[in-house]
Design a protein around this nucleic acid. Sequence first.
DNA 1: ATAATGAATATTCAATATAATATTCATTAT
DNA 2: ATAATGAATATTATATTGAATATTCATTAT
Lengths: 197, 197
Amino acid sequence: MLIAQEIKKQIIEVADTRFRRYGFGKTTMAEIAKDCHMSAANLYRYFENKEKIGIEIALKCLHQKEQIGEAVLERDGLSAGERLETFFIDILHYTYDICANDEHLFELVAFISQEHKDIVRQHQASLLAFIGRILEEGIQEETFDIQDVSSKAETILFAMVHFYYPPLVMMNNHRLDQLEHAAKNVVRLLIQGLAKH
Amino acid sequence: MLIAQEIKKQIIEVADTRFRRYGFGKTTMAEIAKDCHMSAANLYRYFENKEKIGIEIALKCLHQKEQIGEAVLERDGLSAGERLETFFIDILHYTYDICANDEHLFELVAFISQEHKDIVRQHQASLLAFIGRILEEGIQEETFDIQDVSSKAETILFAMVHFYYPPLVMMNNHRLDQLEHAAKNVVRLLIQGLAKH
DNA sequence: ATAATGAATATTCAATATAATATTCATTAT
DNA sequence: ATAATGAATATTATATTGAATATTCATTAT
């Protein structure tokens, strides 16, 4: 039935709004149900439990982050180096905004990430794939000198963790402009290291 | 009086042993006092409170880590690149060992780091200074091409955070050999980026 | 059969009481 | 004066309970 999918979507929508405003813990199933004009018991026909709703929302958030990255891949007129830099800067901005403005959402994603490592791995795999594609582009352009693309992508992700991993982005309450400056320095040094001479 | 310094040292020694075995929270001032053959009240003649004892131990630990780094600076027969790599590998090993074997000590240092950002800043400043010296060496050797040494040192520290910052070292229970491999890849890419062509 | 519910039960949370421990202080010993 | 203590007090952790909430289930409606 497609209608069931619609209802699931509505539940997520409603829960998302409440989670962001009041947090996961302070939102009750009864409240979500009321917003959907149904009983709390009926929610369980659509989600196994409250945490599963939280997971969906965290996934939605990570997916959005991936779309930010993906958008950079489709932008025209960038060299591979510029694309890599833009990729991380855009992701940094998105991550920072979420963490700074949606404290509750940040906590939810942090919690889910903690409990469900597979979700994090999946997300990282997406980012790795994007970086891989940018590196391939650099090889095509003959600006990058790379033997093993996926190994190099992994290396770059390790080096940039400070700028996409939420707890680190928020650590030491750096300002966004400071982080952006640091991120540019790191990514440019990496690009320099990738460059063909 | 020098004897007072001796007693302070003994208190730290005794507390260190208990903190490592039972943790900071589960160790009482009375126990520390008993190990020192004195009353709990008397401890306060040497330390303002329990947390100050914890700080001393955390500092000792960070200082030891700095000495690991410093030792690399004095080693003979290394190029600047090799020295930078060795520096981070040695620090990774030390960090990993502490975190993997001394769970309680790890928690103590993490807690103190959380509460006393100045201590972390101080520690990072030490690491930065070491990296700076290695970079200078590379400039002398004419293998590194660097304009602003302290800026580049900072950039390198950002990129290597995964391999010296305890919570990240321990994250995703990577094995030491995996971390070492990743650390080498990152540091070598950075060195490539610093290289003169 | 599918969707939904109210009531029953299980689990988690928050407030409180209680006990353990950190810290202070007045006093004693060196 | 300095070092140390035991007893008093303040603070923090632990256990206990009652209330709130998540989850299940038997029943009803479509």
